[in-house]
Design a protein around this nucleic acid. Structure first.
Lengths: 143, 143
DNA sequence: CCATAATCTTGACTCATTCCAGAAAACGAG
DNA sequence: CTCGTTTTCTGGAATGAGTCAAGATTATGG
């Protein structure tokens, strides 16, 4: 787990002002991978009870734009955030409980896949979402 | 383009009652691939001015459950529907204008990819979304 | 043609996210 | 260290896709 000074470094390195809400959000995202915005708001308020939800939304947008966090949005779910960035890894999502786990990129660096026919698009990223059942739901369902 | 009787066949084949809203929605989805719900509602009302939005939502859910249409939800977009089903093809999405194009499955049959480490999940589908710029936005941006 | 169960209409409601205006805080210059 | 500028945060209202619920309609088997 990174320390406060580390988060300050991260923020400065991205040319972002260092504020308490930003440090707290960074910390929350690092501590709770794949958490949705509401969970992050609650986690942040444990350290900073007065933050507004708007501040958290703003901070998450700024951090995402700066590449310090990554936003993921599996179908049927609200936006979620994770601190693992820069490696273009993918996700497995449980159809039953919504749980998400990381999956390393199957091939290599981003984009790790090239479309067979790109219709003229200039593709720069391939995002893969695997769907299935997590171990728990799998066990519960087959019983 | 399929005809009305064809849609009735499709519906009956899926054990769904044949109703005017259902036929109209099927027709709209076939005519406008990747359309969002609102566009579909407007298209349906050209044929059936009185349909409620709720009916369209219900029908889309029923058709999706029956496998007659496929629902896609690229991040940052509302739900969209397409009539091309059963071949697990993928999509390229334009980062700038949101346009979507189909991409044939790169490898073979579904699931066309196997995660390197599935964390114990029973994976049954791999959904790939390519991100980039469509020809138009690409040209506009580089000028 | 009837009965029954599925489907549709209407209209209220939820909830994630965004918009807005003013207050507060960060940070570079002096 | 202090000030001024600019960004960020607070508080609260608003937006909009999608859902819920109750009663009216309609498709379909007999």
């Amino acid at each position: 787990m990174a320390s406060i000074p580390d988060y300050q470094q991260l923020l400065r390195g991205a040319a972002l002002r260092v504020t308490r809400p930003r440090v707290a959000v960074l910390d929350a995202v690092h501590a709770h991978p794949h958490a949705d915005t509401d969970s992050i708001i609650r986690a942040v308020r444990r350290a900073l009870p007065e933050v507004s939800h708007q501040a958290v939304y703003d901070v998450l947008r700024a951090l995402t734009a700066a590449g310090l966090v990554r936003r993921i949005e599996p179908s049927g779910s609200v936006a979620r955030y994770e601190a693992r960035v820069g490696d273009n890894h993918h996700h497995v999502v449980c159809r039953s409980c919504g749980r998400i786990a990381d999956v390393d990129c199957a091939v290599g660096e981003s984009p790790c896949l090239t479309p067979s026919d790109d219709s003229g698009f200039a593709v720069d990223e391939a995002e893969v979402t695997y769907w299935g059942l997590c171990p728990e739901c799998s066990a519960a369902g087959s019983s």
